[in-house]
């Protein structure tokens, strides 16, 4: 029997978007590609897990979010055992430049708890509704709402702190 979904077609259609989603969650390109490959491989192993082709993207999105969280957890714990260093070659986007205000947001985003970051990315980049985010993360809509609110507050606080600190440093340098 043919599987319910055509994985090759899904791969061609959604891989870029899913890698971008993963990049926003795990911060580095190589890991993001791995996360997405893992997600497609999981679907390839169980193509019948998705009966309705229209739900395949949602299934992959859940897989990417969960795998990203696992990757972050592994990386965080592994760093406790080894000195931080990065031997991987520079990723394509390393050479590109984010606007300063955007970079400040992305840096602040990285300081949030994984669940908070997931909610913000799914809401403000994937443009999912609260109900869709709740289904993706396996939490209630109320939790989505409260997590988003707390995440924005934390993000604002971090950005304010960083920008104030940067401003003071810059002023000091100008005085010298």
């Amino acid at each position: 029997m043919d599987p319910a979904v055509d994985i090759t077609e899904l791969y061609a259609a959604h891989r870029l978007q899913l890698v971008r989603l993963a990049v926003l969650l795990v911060d580095d390109f190589a890991s993001a590609e791995d996360v997405v490959q893992d997600a497609f491989a999981a679907l390839a192993r169980r193509p019948d897990a998705v009966k309705d082709p229209s739900k395949a993207l949602a299934y992959l999105r859940v897989s990417v979010v969960n795998t990203s969280r696992s990757a972050l957890r592994r990386r965080r714990t592994a760093r406790a055992y080894t000195p931080p260093h990065d031997l991987s070659p520079p990723s394509p986007e390393d050479s590109a430049v984010l606007a300063e205000e955007h970079r400040a947001v992305i840096v602040a985003l990285q300081t949030l708890a994984p669940r908070q970051r997931e909610v913000l990315v799914l809401r403000y980049w994937s443009h999912l509704s609260e109900a869709e985010i709740a289904r993706t993360l396996g939490i209630s809509q109320g939790t989505v709402k409260s997590t988003a609110s707390r995440a924005l507050t934390a993000l604002e606080k971090t950005m304010t702190s960083t920008m104030t600190s940067t401003t003071q440093t810059s002023s000091g340098e100008e005085e010298r």
Partner: peptide
């Protein structure tokens, strides 16, 4: 910011990986 960060990943940046299909 999210849009800008995501768009730094361009289609041509993706590795030529085998399709994860059976």
């Amino acid at each position: 910011a999210l849009e800008a960060r995501a768009e730094l990943v361009r289609p041509e940046d993706l590795s030529l990986l085998a399709t994860a299909a059976p």
